[in-house]
Computed example of a mutant assay.
Amino acid sequence: MKGKISFTLNGSHISMEADLSTRLIDFLRDELKLVGTKEGCSQGECGACTVIIDGRTANSCLVLLGQVQGAAVTTIEGLGDEQNLHPIQEAFIEEGAVQCGYCIPGMVLSAKALLDKNNKPGKEDIRRAISGNLCRCTGYKKIEKAIIRASEKMKEAGYDDGNS
């Protein structure tokens, strides 16, 4: 179903004609060439396709483009770049929480959604926040440590005001 889509993506306004029944992941990857969002299972089970929509995590393989009308969507490309990493990305590297990297964009976005709401999460908070993200390489201990470290780094960098 063709129609006009208008939403904010990584801080920039998007407005264009598109097939509103296209899955968000396909629109991001195929139309906009934002390939940081990965497709793992196509069933919302693995979390590799996690994005943030209006402050909440979502599996972009289960979201239709028309569902983000007027929303604010954040993908991994919206956090930082090679020259200016977000503190969460830095912490994942510093703690060795990145192995193959396939799940990491979704894991980082789940961490961001958590830290935007809770700047001092406990281990249970972290486990709950990443429960929809599967990782086969690291186990989860390094990821948990990375999120705790990211919380500290974000406070040091002045992100603790809810605007991370």
Rank of each mutant, 00 (worst) to 15 (best):
T138V: 12
I25G: 03
G36H: 11
D125N: 10
F92A: 11
K142E: 06
N118P: 01
I52G: 13
R56E: 14
V98E: 12
R23I: 02
R56C: 04
E156R: 12
G44L: 08
E144A: 02
M154E: 14
E124F: 00
K117P: 01
L24Y: 04
D160Q: 08
G122T: 11
K141Y: 08
A150T: 01
N163F: 07
Q67E: 15
G96M: 13
S12R: 15
K112C: 00
K112F: 06
V108I: 15
R56A: 14
A129S: 14
N118W: 00
K142V: 04
H86N: 12
L109N: 05
V68F: 05
M1R: 09
F27W: 12
Q89L: 13
G70C: 07
M16Y: 00
T75S: 09
T22Q: 15
A18G: 07
K155E: 13
R29V: 14
I52L: 13
D26F: 13
I147Q: 02
L115I: 05
C46Y: 01
T37I: 11
G162W: 03
N10P: 07
A150E: 03
K120R: 13
G122C: 01
G47S: 10
K120N: 13
E82L: 14
E144S: 02
T74P: 01
G139T: 03
L79C: 11
A146P: 08
T57A: 02
G139Y: 02
G132K: 11
T57S: 11
C61W: 05
L28P: 12
R149Q: 14
Q99E: 11
N59T: 12
M16H: 00
A129F: 06
G106K: 05
R56H: 08
I52F: 04
E90H: 09
A97K: 01
P105H: 11
C49Y: 00
P87T: 07
S151I: 06
K38R: 15
G70S: 07
T57I: 15
Q43P: 00
E124D: 15
S42P: 00
C135L: 09
K120L: 01
Q69E: 15
L9A: 05
A91V: 06
Y159A: 10
R136Q: 10
V73D: 08
G55F: 06
S164A: 14
E90C: 13
D30F: 02
E156M: 10
E31P: 01
K33V: 13
P121L: 00
G101E: 08
E39C: 13
I148G: 00
N10Y: 01
A111I: 05
G106I: 09
L65R: 08
K120M: 01
G139E: 03
N84E: 09
E17Q: 15
V108F: 05
D116R: 06
